[in-house]
Computed example of a mutant assay.
Amino acid sequence: MIEAKNVTKRYGQTVVVDDVTLQLPVGGITSIIGPNGAGKSTLLSMMSRVLPMSSGTVRVDGLDVTTTPGDVLARRLAILRQDNPLTARLTVRELVTFGRYPHSKGRPTVKDREHVEQAIRHMGLDALAERFLDELSGGQRQRAFVAMVLCQDTDYVLLDEPLNGLDLKHAVSMMKHLRHAADALQKSVVVVLHDINFASCYSNHLIAMRDGKVAFQGRPADIMRPEVLRAVYELDISIQRIDGDFIATHYR
Rank of each mutant, 00 (worst) to 15 (best):
V50C: 01
V50F: 08
V50E: 05
L51I: 11
P52N: 11
P52R: 10
P52T: 14
M53K: 15
S54P: 04
S55C: 04
S55G: 05
G56H: 08
T57I: 12
T57R: 13
V58P: 05
V58Q: 03
R59N: 12
R59L: 09
R59Y: 13
V60D: 03
G62A: 04
G62F: 11
G62S: 01
V65Y: 08
T68K: 00
P69F: 03
P69D: 01
G70L: 12
D71S: 06
V72A: 08
L73V: 09
L73G: 02
L73P: 02
A74F: 12
A74N: 01
R75V: 01
R76D: 08
A78G: 13
L80W: 00
Q82V: 00
Q82N: 06
D83A: 15
P85L: 05
P85Q: 10
L86M: 14
A88V: 15
R89E: 12
R89T: 13
L90A: 13
V92C: 06
V92H: 09
V92K: 08
V92Q: 03
R93L: 02
L95H: 02
L95K: 00
V96D: 09
V96Y: 01
V96G: 10
T97G: 07
F98T: 01
F98A: 00
Y101M: 02
P102Y: 01
H103S: 03
S104A: 10
S104H: 07
S104W: 07
G106I: 09
G106K: 04
R107I: 04
P108Q: 11
P108S: 07
T109F: 03
V110L: 14
V110T: 15
K111V: 13
D112Q: 03
D112K: 08
R113S: 06
R113A: 01
R113C: 12
E114Y: 10
H115V: 04
V116S: 02
V116C: 12
V116T: 03
V116A: 04
E117Y: 12
R121I: 02
R121Y: 15
R121F: 04
H122M: 15
M123H: 01
M123A: 08
G124L: 03
G124H: 06
G124S: 02
G124Y: 11
G124C: 04
G124Q: 07
L125D: 10
L125A: 08
D126P: 00
D126I: 02
A127T: 08
L128C: 05
E130N: 15
E130K: 10
E130H: 08
R131T: 05
F132E: 15
F132A: 00
L133P: 03
D134P: 07
E135M: 08
L136H: 00
S137N: 10
S137C: 07
G138T: 11
G138K: 07
G138H: 09
G139T: 03
